[in-house]
């Protein structure tokens, strides 16, 4: 019998609640630390602050585990805490947490590592360079989005969470998630438009196809 991630999470939470099992809590941290760090670092541009917030997420989880009733997935709760902490962080700083994107910076860009979750088969060095450059451009463009749009894009497009989970995390209706996602993608397209249309120094080879 295959045990799902949710079942494993529920078992870990039960161990934490029933026996005050620190090892179970450490297992939760190890299981989700990379995803939370990824999300928070993209929500908060300052890397040190982001890592601090990510750790605080798990402190909040530890403090609130006894009240967690498994009505939603554990990772949904984690991302919700992370989102709220990022919003609090920005309010404390009292300035927009936006990065600025300049296409003039393109020649200075260097290739970044691609994760194994990429779908396209990159076969030639040229394609690899284009792919890496595109990733970096998208990364920066996401950083220019308003926070409420950025959160939705990160949760759905980057983390791959379904609409329903995103709605629970950001605390808004499903229709609002779809709307925000549409506006976020439109804004990203506006930002990346010259690059996608080949007006930037490097041209991404479009492969347009019908639906």
């Amino acid at each position: 019998m295959v045990t799902s991630v949710a079942d494993n999470d529920a078992a870990l939470v039960a161990r934490c609640k029933d026996g005050d099992d620190r090892q179970a809590f450490d297992d939760i941290v190890v299981r989700y630390k990379d995803r939370i760090v990824n999300y928070v670092r993209r929500m908060v541009s300052d890397r040190d602050d982001a890592d601090d917030i990510a750790q605080e997420v798990f402190v909040r989880v530890y403090a609130g585990l006894r009240g967690f009733e498994n009505r939603s997935a554990l990772y949904t709760w984690l991302f919700r805490i992370a989102t709220n902490l990022c919003i609090d962080y920005r309010r404390r700083r009292r300035r927009p947490e936006r990065q600025h994107l300049s296409l003039d910076a393109l020649p200075e860009l260097t290739a970044c590592g691609n994760s194994d979750k990429g779908r396209g088969d990159v076969t030639t060095p040229e394609q690899a360079a284009i792919h890496s450059e595109l990733s970096l451009m998208i990364e920066r463009a996401i950083g220019t989005l308003p926070e409420r749009l950025r959160a939705v894009v990160l949760l759905h497009d980057v983390e791959g969470l379904p609409y329903e989970d995103v709605a629970r995390i950001v605390g808004c209706p499903l229709g609002t998630v779809k709307s925000r996602l549409f506006h976020a993608r439109s804004a990203l397209r506006d930002t990346l438009g010259p690059y996608l249309r080949g007006e930037a120094p490097q041209v991404y080879d479009k492969d347009r196809s019908a639906i």
């Binding site: 941290v29 939370i36 990824n38 890592d51 691609n114 779908r119 990733s135 998208i138 497009d157 996608l196």
Partner: peptide
């Protein structure tokens, strides 16, 4: 087409692993 390229590109963004002492930091907190 562009939205699909952007969505696929976003999903393929590189992973940034947590620092090695992350768990230690949580326990310290």
């Amino acid at each position: 087409h562009d939205v699909k390229v952007i969505r696929d590109g976003a999903r393929a963004l590189s992973s940034m692993p947590a620092p090695d002492d992350f768990l230690l930091g949580v326990n310290r907190k």
